[in-house]
């Protein structure tokens, strides 16, 4: 197979683009896809300071690297989750990238700075680990961005992640989530803008990007993820994609284009009813926000 752009031997085929790419053309293609997502959805504006949430995995490291290549003013944020060896290795990958590239990495540690780790916190609060984890990340990423004077938090959610979440939300018609499943959530209410610049890249592409750029990432899977629904959705979507390349892209971007506006009024109305958390000031539906309740129970 030859590179679509320069006819050199290809190292990767992307079936939904009906194309193969050599190393350099693939890296350029990846940057262009991120640039296009940023521009199409008005994710990052000139002068914005961006904080990218770096897990040490392929997506967030690829994102950090691409944003730096695109001359975005960007620093990394690593949040230690206290998930044993997995977290130790993840932190090492994030730090190694920062050291090698002279990039700035802000570090936070859930056990040391907040007082609990994900496995214990989830068990004590009787939440699924990924739900406790997601809640903590959302809260602490935003907090770190506000504290550090950043305008934007960027996360490494890719096309596969977004398509799988959409699939789950559609299966259960979770309309309030459908209304908020957007590649950009505007700032407001104490939240900085949240963006997902990798929505045009699949996870096979972000992994390939790291391999080809020599970026060492956490290859092991988080032990908390095993058997979760999200993985089942991804397997189902990949089975469809294999038969009919481009399905994931059509599913997700078709949703944004044609269906998402139907659900946003409900989500906006819900946002407007929020009041400040009595503990931390974060907008919430109750008196105390879900994160503060988690912290309270997890610290015991």
């Amino acid at each position: 197979m030859k590179c679509r752009r320069c006819r050199a031997p290809a190292v990767i085929e992307i079936r939904r683009h009906n194309a193969g790419f050599c190393r350099d053309c693939f890296l350029r293609h990846s940057r262009e896809q991120v640039r296009k997502a940023i521009d199409d959805f008005d994710m990052i504006r000139p002068g914005d300071r961006v904080l990218v949430a770096v897990s040490g995995g392929k997506d967030s490291l690829a994102l950090w690297d691409i944003l730096r290549d695109l001359d975005v003013d960007v620093d990394g944020l690593y949040l230690g989750l206290g998930i044993g060896e997995y977290s130790d290795d993840s932190g090492r990958c994030a730090r190694a990238y920062a050291d090698e590239h002279g990039a700035k990495l802000v570090e936070l540690d859930l056990p040391a700075d907040v007082g609990f780790d994900i496995p214990t916190g989830a068990r004590v609060a009787r939440r699924a680990p990924c739900s406790a984890c997601g809640l903590s990340k959302r809260h602490l990423f935003n907090q770190a961005a506000v504290d550090g004077g950043y305008d934007v938090v960027a996360t490494g959610h890719n096309l596969d992640d977004e398509a799988a979440v959409l699939f789950g939300n559609v299966l259960r018609w979770s309309t309030e989530y459908l209304g908020r499943q957007l590649p950009v959530l505007p700032a407001g209410n104490g939240f900085v803008r949240k963006v997902k610049p990798l929505v045009r890249l699949g996870e096979r592409e972000t992994a390939a990007y790291c391999v080809l750029k020599g970026i060492d990432y956490q290859v092991e899977e988080c032990p908390m993820a095993a058997g979760n629904r999200h993985l089942g959705y991804k397997a189902a979507l990949n089975a469809i994609e294999d038969q009919s390349p481009g399905s994931k892209h059509a599913f997700y971007f078709g949703f944004l284009d044609k269906a998402s506006p139907l659900f946003t009024p409900e989500a906006v109305a819900e946002q407007e009813q929020l009041q400040a958390c009595a503990r931390c000031g974060t907008p919430t539906t109750g008196e105390v926000c879900a994160f503060c309740r988690l912290v309270e129970r997890a610290r015991g």
């Binding site: 392929k58 996870e203 095993a226």
Partner: peptide, 10 residues
């Protein structure tokens, strides 16, 4: 053969 599917749902 390197798997590329990650499982987190957040």
């Amino acid at each position: 053969i390197r798997p590329v599917v990650s499982g987190g749902s957040s």
